[in-house]
Structures are given as structure tokens and as C-alpha cells.
Design a protein around this nucleic acid. Structure first.
Lengths: 122, 122
DNA sequence: AGTACTTGGTATCTTTTGGATACTCTGACG
DNA sequence: CGTCAGAGTATCCAAAAGATACCAAGTACT
């Protein structure tokens, strides 16, 4: 077992690019929305509240290109398109969950800090 | 212990705001750069490769406001400013590490998927 | 007295990204 | 023929990020 040759602190390292893809605004939400199985475009739109179709398309295309999500078109009418996680995408669920749980369980403390700060800066 | 009242999937939920702060482009890198103790502005600039001073300032101010980072000015000459993690900021290290390790250990797979995709889309 | 040096930033301008909203395309169906 | 559903595009505007240059305080040097 050798050491990891990637270092996110190096701006020239590919892992930096990867980190910024998975740490973008919508990726974590989309990946987690797909955790229980495939969803269609319109279902994703609802599951991930607040995303516009343009940005959803952009993000899904990026996830597809990076091998995290699979897009499958069914020749029905009206056309049906399903998005599902690849195994690589599923492997991202655990780390993402850790962050999400932190966000949900510490949100109150952050909001409190923000209020205190804003009150002090009057 | 009751269940968590926050849900990142809800665009109106405060945890969504929190998630997007900690999942922004530079926050994870800055927080991890501070994991071994305080750093000065200029040290952070080097530790987090590629960040411009403007964005570093903006991000640090946001982290300070949210109670994740503490800014301390020493009345020396030239002035010295130290940034350190608060306990709340330290609690973020574990989840962030999980994501970073994923990024570093799966970067090669993502790059491969990208190459394959781009080759297919010729 | 003038001036250079260090640190920790701002100011300004340009480019990129994100968001709102309206529209398109396809093929059944009434 | 007009309408409907699903999956997006197109267009335009606002917000954020990036590059680069500059500024302020104070001491030390000449």
C-alpha cells in the first residue's frame, strides 16, 4: 500500500478539480437525491428543491461525464429519462452523508454565531 | 434526543445555507489548512494554493461570521494576524476529511471516466 | 527628513457562473 | 387540428470569482 499521490492543496493537482466538482452547489444534493434508486428529470427537480432546469441539466451532464451518474433514455412517449448513480457515485454517498449530517446537526450553532456576529457589528 | 429538524433538501431550510457555505469552493481547503494550528494570512495564502487575496479575505470573513474561525490581531509591527479554528470549526474536520480522502483516492477514476466520455463524444 | 520594507489586506476591472423565465421538440390523443 | 406531457434549450440578467494593482501603518535605515 503506497501513499496517495494526489494532494488537494496543490492547485495543479487533478484531485483539486475533483474536489471542486463534488463540492459544488448542487452535486451533493443531486447525488443524495439518487441514493434510493433512479429518478427522472422532473422527479429530481422536485427532490432537489430550488434548482432550475438549466442548472440541473448542466450538473447532471457534468456528473455523467465524471462517471458518477448514468443517464438512460427510454423510447416511450412522452420520452422518459432516468438518472441513476454508478458504483462510483454510490461510493460518494458516505462522505457526502457525513457532511450533510454535520450541516443538519450544526446549523443551529452557525445561525447563532451569525446572529451574535451581526449583533456585535451594529 | 429528538430527530434533526433540518433538511438540506428543503430550499427554505437553514441547513441548506449552511451546507452551501461549507461546500463552497475554498472553505474546505482553508479549514483543512488550519487543522494543525493557527496560520497567518500570508501563510494561508501559500498553504491553500491558488487562492487570491480578495477571495481569501472574503472566505475568512464568512467563516469568522459563522463561528468556524477566529481572527486575532497582534499589535506588532508589521501587524500580525492569526486565524485559528474554533471548536465548531474543528468539528468540521472529520466530515471534510472524508470528502477529501474520497477526492484524492478516486481522482484517477474520475479522470478516466472523463477521458472515456470525451473520447466517445468526438 | 525622506524613504524603503513588511504585512494584511482593498480597489478595480474582466470573466465565469448561476438564476429567472420563456420557449422548443416529439409523438400520442381527442 | 389543437392539446398535452416530459425533457430539456435559449435568452437575458445578476452574482460571484479571478487577475492585477494599489494602499496604510509603523519602524528602521541613510
Amino acid at each position: 500500500m503506497e501513499s496517495i499521490p494526489f494532494d488537494v492543496m496543490d492547485p495543479a493537482c487533478p484531485s483539486r478539480v475533483v474536489l471542486q466538482r463534488i463540492g459544488d452547489k448542487w452535486t451533493p444534493l443531486i447525488v443524495q437525491a439518487l441514493k434510493d434508486g433512479p429518478l427522472r428529470f422532473s422527479e429530481l427537480r422536485v427532490a432537489v428543491g430550488g434548482i432550475t432546469p438549466k442548472v440541473l441539466t448542466q450538473t447532471l451532464r457534468a456528473l455523467e461525464r465524471d462517471g458518477l451518474v448514468l443517464r438512460k433514455v427510454f423510447a416511450e412517449v412522452p420520452v422518459r429519462v432516468e438518472y441513476r448513480l454508478t458504483p462510483l457515485g454510490e461510493s460518494l454517498l458516505d462522505p457526502l452523508n457525513a457532511v450533510r449530517e454535520w450541516a443538519e446537526s450544526h446549523a443551529d450553532k452557525i445561525l447563532a454565531a451569525r446572529d451574535a456576529f451581526d449583533a456585535a457589528t451594529d
